[in-house]
Computed example of a mutant assay.
Amino acid sequence: MFGDDFLAQQRLLVITPHADDETYGCAGSMARVKSLGGEVYVVLATTGDLVHFGDGGDGRTTKLVTHETRLREFESVMRLLKVDDWDVLFDDSETHLALDVMPRKRLVSLLENEGRLSIERLRPTMVMIPAASYNQDHEALFHACVTATRPGVPSQRHVVPWVLAYDNTSLFWSFGHERFHPTCYIDVTEYLELKIQAMRLHASQVRPPIYHGSPESLELATRVRGREVSVEAAEGFALLRAVF
């Protein structure tokens, strides 16, 4: 597990497909890095109007959630976690849930050097990216992030020393490729309550406790990750690169 001295030195960039994925995967780690004096930046890939399953009232099982609502919720979470800055790449409904049909070159360029919080501009010491899943935006962004963090000549482009893929409560439903297996952990015992508070601020996405992505289930999942390494609560990551 990463210790305080190490985390305090990090300039962390979190890249998230949708508003709330950053909370599922690494809100506790973000809070811990900030509390220790490190820097945290977040790039949200896409948000847009969407009709999805949920209590729509009057017996309806679907509801419309606008991109304005998702952005307000996301910004409230960024303030709660005290991140240094955040940016949104796309806020239109045509792009939302359609990153898989966007040329990867465009996504990579934004992540690598064209975006306001691009890797070249921030020069982060650590990048956390979404693990691949059945969601097309997650899958597309994962591959774009891998490309954007590829090795290169240090004098010509910034090579991120630490690249990690973060967890999601939906990853149990993964067929056709290997299940997510954490290879490193961050103890977030002291930040678990804050992580769950952040999840509740994504109010349009909150569902009943039985749902795998509910705040209650997220707390259970974070505690399970903790038990895997003998702490109360932890976030698990797949380590893609480590340069000492």
Rank of each mutant, 00 (worst) to 15 (best):
P130E: 02
A27K: 09
R104V: 06
S109I: 00
E22N: 04
L110E: 13
L141F: 01
V146H: 02
M126F: 11
D58V: 09
L122Q: 02
A221W: 09
T62I: 12
Q10G: 04
L171V: 07
L141E: 01
R11H: 12
Q9M: 14
R11I: 10
V206M: 01
I196F: 02
M78C: 15
G38H: 04
R225C: 12
L192F: 12
Y185N: 02
L13Q: 05
H158M: 06
R106N: 07
V160L: 08
A19V: 02
E190I: 02
E39H: 14
A8Y: 05
G59H: 04
V127D: 05
L64D: 06
A198C: 07
L110V: 00
S217I: 00
R121P: 12
L171G: 04
Q10R: 15
M1K: 10
L218A: 05
R72L: 14
Y211S: 11
D21N: 07
V127Q: 05
E193R: 06
R32S: 08
R32I: 11
F175D: 11
E120K: 08
A45H: 05
F175N: 11
R121D: 04
P124V: 00
I119H: 03
L64P: 07
T183Q: 11
D58K: 08
S174A: 13
T149Q: 04
A242R: 15
M102W: 12
L71A: 01
H52Y: 14
F90V: 06
E120F: 02
H158Y: 13
L164G: 01
L7K: 11
R227Y: 08
V101F: 01
L71H: 03
P182W: 08
